[in-house]
Design a protein around this nucleic acid. Structure first.
Lengths: 194, 194
DNA sequence: TAATTATCTAACACCTTGTAAATTAAGTCT
DNA sequence: AGACTTAATTTACAAGGTGTTAGATAATTA
């Protein structure tokens, strides 16, 4: 998905892309415990030894992929518009960008979010959303829940888990609603509850 | 944690308990990818071959442990009272029972919920809570969010993910609030938002 | 005590991991 | 284009994990 910034040897980019694609491929077919460096290398048509030139082991590879996922999301969300619709406020537009980004890379997200046993990706998304929710709460903007009498910590846990959990369920169920509709539903949840 | 119902050879109970304790023990010390049948057996002072007499492999062991976790929770939640407090309604009492059960077995839940990479347990809890939330929604009782205009599916995803996510964060942060306080906070979230 | 059943021991073939050294291939730079 | 640099490949190795077998030993049950 993401491209390295400074001129990088194309062989490196090619190899990493092949390895990552092979991993996503395999994850569609089997549980992560059954995936070995052997299988990844074989599927990527890359020598097994080469894998170790790029990643320490499979968990290390997952972490780097999760980093890239977050980077790409930040880019997509900050890139903003491209979806003119005067009824949507700033927050709804950000959520729309996020959901559309996920929908565009459905194959990837379906695999890493829907597969049980790859919680790293969900963890990272949760962390990212917690930060957003916490900022919103501190800025006094309407939160996703009524915060009157509710401890701030708990409100943040509650709202961010609700968001990520809904998104994961949405992806797992093959995105039965459009990104725009889901973003609007989130806005409803946000504005009705204050 | 849980005991088998029909008279079972005490050697079986002993072996399984030793294996499960060893596993929880190891999970406190290392990531799950580093845990092998070898290590579990060694820590449990059980022969490695014996492990295979009880479980097909480690994922199978995890599944059985998750089943038992859910069984134990159902028992604890249905056992109800033991916490008289007239201000609490039925739902709040059920939540209180759940949180107290988790607090009682903090060592276990801390390990299986807080450890990244053991999502089976979280998955099972989510499934359980989704069922509860869906029933509540269909019975017309107040949900955890304002459901006016919100698709039922989405409301269920949202509320159940919020609950399980909050509980996981609560456990990961070493339960900084009492079960009763957290149960009350959930009630606030529930009653304020309708 | 005898019969049953669980656990242990030893051994097996096979797969996976992580690393090393030497060779080949591809990309970069002037 | 040719020299230089760096990536990928090949081959090899030791250590450890997996899942299964068959027979011996120990604990439980009736």
């Amino acid at each position: 998905m993401s491209q390295d910034k400074p001129r990088t040897d194309p062989r490196i980019l090619r190899t990493r892309q092949l390895l990552k694609d092979a991993f996503v491929d395999l994850l569609q077919e089997m549980d992560i415990e059954k995936i070995s460096v052997n299988k990844i290398a074989e599927r990527a048509t890359i020598n097994r030894v080469t894998f170790y030139l790029h990643y320490r082991d499979i968990p290390d590879m997952l972490e780097k992929m999760a980093d890239e996922m977050i980077e790409d999301i930040q880019l997509a969300v900050n890139r903003e518009p491209a979806h003119p619709n005067q009824t949507e406020d700033e927050d709804e537009l950000a959520m729309l960008s996020l959901l559309e980004h996920i929908a565009e890379h459905a194959k990837f997200f379906k695999v890493v979010l829907a597969s049980r046993r790859t919680p790293i990706f969900t963890e990272r998304l949760l962390r990212m959303l917690s930060e957003t929710v916490r900022q919103r709460l501190e800025s006094g903007r309407p939160s996703f829940v009524n915060t009157a009498g509710v401890q701030k910590d708990i409100a943040v846990w509650y709202s961010s888990a609700a968001l990520i959990g809904t998104i994961v369920s949405w992806v797992r169920n093959d995105m039965p609603y459009s990104p725009r509709f889901l973003a609007q539903q989130f806005s409803l949840l946000r504005t009705h509850n204050q």
